[in-house]
Computed example of a mutant assay.
Amino acid sequence: MMRSLLHSCWMAGLFALASLGVAAPGAALAQDPAATGRAPELLRAFLAETVTFEASFSQVLLEADSAHAQVSTGRFYLHRPQRFRWDYREPVTHLVVADGEHLWLYDPDLEQVTVRRLDDGLSSTPAMLLSGDGSLDDTFRIGAAYQEDGFDWVELAPLADSADFAGVRVGFVAERLAAMELVDALGQTTVIRFDDVTVNGPVDPALFQFVPPPGADVLSDQGP
């Protein structure tokens, strides 16, 4: 269940898929694997040079074999390594915080908090792609890179056989991170768009701290 929650919390998109003007990741996999582009270089530069990242986001989750799309918007904050915050604001509030040691998921409507340790088991998940401090090549296979609809795209596939998602692609516009897309093992497509981006600006450290509110149920899958 934790991985499914992570998948729903790591991406965002500005419009429904029909109006995005970009192909879903599954379509991108049909591209020539020998295609070349700048996106791998841009992704490596992002991981090497970015300390903080802040942006508005919009996320679209398109269910498999369905025209139904779930659209969410909010604010994303990143402080590498292993600190991030997805602040979902519409249509419902929801909070995901990684504080460097733990991952917290808070649902105010249910008054429920889910927590687990950040460990190697999460290193190859899309949620940790931007914030992790490991090598990109240790966890992902870099696939096709190409330009499409104004984006520089690179496709990534997990090296771990146990990964429960099929592929990721990351998009840049004007050398800046602008989009991420995911197809998971259930055939669901998640599309994110970042807007109003600030790179390496000041970010309040308190954003990456979380204390369960009084009265909230706290669920943990941490082992002994």
Score class of each variant (00 low, 15 high):
155 E>W: 06
129 L>R: 01
150 G>P: 11
53 F>C: 01
142 I>F: 11
179 A>P: 03
209 Q>E: 12
8 S>M: 09
107 D>Q: 02
173 V>G: 07
176 R>S: 10
129 L>C: 02
114 T>E: 02
81 P>G: 08
107 D>W: 00
67 A>T: 15
51 V>R: 12
107 D>M: 00
26 G>H: 07
160 A>I: 00
118 L>Y: 03
103 L>C: 04
161 D>C: 01
127 A>F: 06
160 A>V: 01
207 L>S: 00
183 V>R: 09
179 A>V: 08
189 T>E: 10
166 A>G: 10
134 G>Q: 11
112 Q>P: 10
124 S>R: 10
138 D>N: 05
2 M>Q: 07
7 H>K: 06
137 D>T: 13
73 T>P: 03
83 R>V: 06
27 A>W: 01
106 Y>S: 02
123 S>R: 14
190 T>R: 13
163 A>H: 09
193 R>V: 04
106 Y>C: 02
119 D>Q: 09
71 V>G: 00
170 V>D: 03
129 L>W: 01
153 W>D: 10
159 L>E: 12
98 A>Q: 10
149 D>L: 04
165 F>C: 07
76 F>N: 04
42 L>E: 11
138 D>P: 00
71 V>S: 04
10 W>T: 15
76 F>L: 09
13 G>M: 06
79 H>N: 08
176 R>Y: 01
35 A>E: 14
61 L>K: 13
83 R>C: 05
59 Q>P: 08
68 H>A: 15
4 S>G: 11
130 L>R: 03
218 V>M: 03
165 F>K: 01
26 G>D: 14
205 P>N: 09
205 P>E: 09
130 L>H: 06
160 A>F: 03
57 F>H: 01
176 R>K: 08
39 A>H: 04
24 A>P: 03
220 S>C: 09
151 F>V: 13
93 T>Y: 05
54 E>V: 11
186 L>W: 12
73 T>L: 01
150 G>I: 12
133 D>I: 14
179 A>I: 07
133 D>N: 15
9 C>K: 03
147 Q>W: 07
44 R>N: 14
129 L>Q: 04
209 Q>S: 11
51 V>T: 15
219 L>R: 05
22 V>P: 03
31 Q>W: 01
71 V>K: 05
216 A>I: 03
90 E>K: 08
110 L>E: 09
166 A>F: 09
55 A>E: 01
